[in-house]
């Protein structure tokens, strides 16, 4: 059980790293949202599932409830994260920011 948890947490941390590096490297605001909103959500999913497996421990009622609560956080984040991303994009479009594009002539 612990091995599965460790592997999933490591994958989650890898996704988190991708998200953080992407926020730094991307050229403009719209493309920065791609790593920021999504890679972070995926990293959260992976590391939270790993922690839920670890928190399950020896399967008593209290530990199972804690695990379920961690899963509930993941479900909540999966519903709200697209909404938050969409709110930021909408603000950018309404303020009239131009998206960065590749110069192909």
């Amino acid at each position: 059980m612990n091995t599965i948890a460790v592997i999933m947490i490591l994958i989650g941390l890898l996704f988190f790293t991708g998200g953080a590096v992407g926020i730094i490297r991307m050229p403009d605001f719209y493309s920065r949202l791609h790593p920021a909103g999504k890679l972070d959500t995926m990293g959260l999913l992976m590391s939270m599932l790993g922690l839920a497996v670890y928190a399950l421990g020896d399967m008593t009622l209290g530990e199972a409830l804690t695990s379920l609560k961690i899963i509930l956080i993941v479900v909540f984040v999966f519903i709200t994260s697209p909404t938050a991303t969409h709110a930021i994009v909408d603000a950018g479009v309404r303020a009239g920011l131009e998206p960065w594009t590749q110069d192909r002539h």
Binding site: G12, F16, G19, A20, I23, F29, R32, L33, A36, G37, D40, T41, G43, L44, S47, M48, L51, I70, I73, V77, S81, A84, I88, A91, G92, A95, L97
Partner: peptide
């Protein structure tokens, strides 16, 4: 970050990492 919305993205990313950090 050049615009206010870039700062907002940064804050949002920090927040989602904190959610995981609290469980750790």
């Amino acid at each position: 970050g050049p615009t206010v919305l870039d700062r907002l993205i940064g804050v949002n990313a920090i927040g989602s990492k904190t959610t995981a950090l609290l469980i750790f």
